[in-house]
Design a protein around this nucleic acid. Structure first.
Lengths: 246, 246
DNA sequence: CCCGATTTGTTTTGTCATACATTATGACAA
DNA sequence: TTGTCATAATGTATGACAAAACAAATCGGG
């Protein structure tokens, strides 16, 4: 239990949070089960109870667990976890099947990003547009694949922020953690010129304040990204079949 | 500073978390500023440092603050907050302009919910569909407005869970906290029969596994809800104009 | 005397240890 | 069955020390 992760840096309580949180997300401690008493965890990890408790508070704040005196600390059902929390995402990423994980993420992007671009076209200020343009320029100027991906991520994040709707922001946050992989996958050489053109189309539509054009340009962009991913990673990337007959 | 909230029940550290978190979200402590040293907060609220520290860990976990020895604890920029975290949402709701808040929330729903219904049509299992149907039946059987709203919320939540994509779940979580108001607003008497028909249309499409029909039925449903809200709350509910010229 | 690098000091968070309070749970007894 | 009580777990308080970061003072070289 509580695999000895290789995260050695940072605070002690962050390390404990990582190990316990990771264990929970991995499913080491089934839903509804109680994890070991605080004192026992202290011994297991050789830290003080203060540290363990602060780690527990963090996990409680993310919705992973709930504690009550005497009865102990139980794992809450995954529907109540803050699935978009950066740490939770990271822990999932450690354990999950990467292709299916990226596929689900892409489902969310496909739902949200066209609307975000449309909203950005209406609400973006000059600073927002400058940021988006900087992303485009960065992609154009990129020498290495790494640079290209970083600029690509910045571009998409900027669109979410440009909506001026804070409820879209958490989705932009995810990109740092989760999308570096999928972007890298799709950024392989030959696709870059076409991608660049399509990104500029989105930028231009937003800068022009044309919501519908921004939406459609984003749909095109995502469609082609999805095609690339399917081509490279195989059909695992497609939606799995319905689990039960009706 | 740290308004004396009326949340008196629960743990002490939850209360402290509430008061400090609320202050931050309200903007009492500008972005980048440092909040008072832990010992000072202890005195202010007459609690032990243990409690204050655990509250700080919770807030750190939600992305609101970051602490370093000597330099103190600073408020992070709102783009880095977990804006979909239930607590953060609650604190926002305390302070925000309700109409504009609901409008932004509705923008997110409009983006996500049609896609969620489409995914549900493909991925929902029998249990998922039963839950959605239960929501419908609850709306039909509701005697009071309160009952109707509760069933309505359950219906929409079930759709998000039925996507079988955990990244959609946090959006369903928000409903408990934030949408009770807007649902109640729109549930006034005469609109209920039509709403019920439109909800059943979504259910039927999902049960039939028809993704496109589910998407379109949801679009219709949301469109009418938005109309109701605009009619009742006035144009404040519409999107504000672009802040800067280009 | 001036300037820069280093050292030393101080403040604040990070960690540990211990004690006691509070509260569910389960067993026992009426 | 119901009420009471022991117990085990979390919740809270206190005090001490470690570590780190910023600031001032100090020292060395020009």
């Amino acid at each position: 239990m509580f695999q000895t992760s290789n995260a050695l840096r940072r605070n002690v309580h962050s390390q404990v949070t990582d190990r316990v949180g990771s264990s929970i997300v991995r499913g080491d401690i089934g839903v509804g089960e109680t994890l070991p008493p605080e004192m026992q965890i202290c011994e297991m990890m050789d830290v003080s109870r203060t540290v363990v408790r602060e780690a527990m508070r963090t996990l409680t704040g993310k919705g992973l667990i709930e504690s009550r005196p005497k009865s102990g600390t139980r794992v809450r059902p995954p529907e109540q976890w803050n699935q978009l929390d950066p740490d939770v995402l990271r822990w999932r990423l450690e354990t999950a099947n990467t292709d299916r994980y990226l596929a689900k993420l892409f489902q969310l992007r496909s739902a949200v990003e066209p609307a975000a671009a449309a909203l950005a076209a209406v609400h973006a200020g000059e600073d927002d547009i400058a940021r988006i343009r900087a992303g485009c320029d960065g992609m154009a100027a990129a020498k290495t694949n790494e640079d290209f991906v970083v600029a690509d991520i910045a571009f998409h994040q900027s669109i979410y922020f440009a909506t001026r709707n804070e409820f879209f922001w958490p989705i932009a946050q995810m990109f740092e953690i989760t999308l570096r992989q999928s972007f890298t996958i799709a950024a392989t050489g030959s696709h870059r010129p076409r991608a660049l053109v399509e990104h500029r189309a989105v930028l231009d539509a937003i800068a022009a304040g044309d919501a519908e054009a921004a939406r459609e340009a984003t749909v095109v962009l995502l469609k082609h990204s999805a095609d690339d991913l399917v081509r490279i990673r195989g059909r695992e990337f497609d939606a799995p079949a319905r689990p039960a007959k009706r």
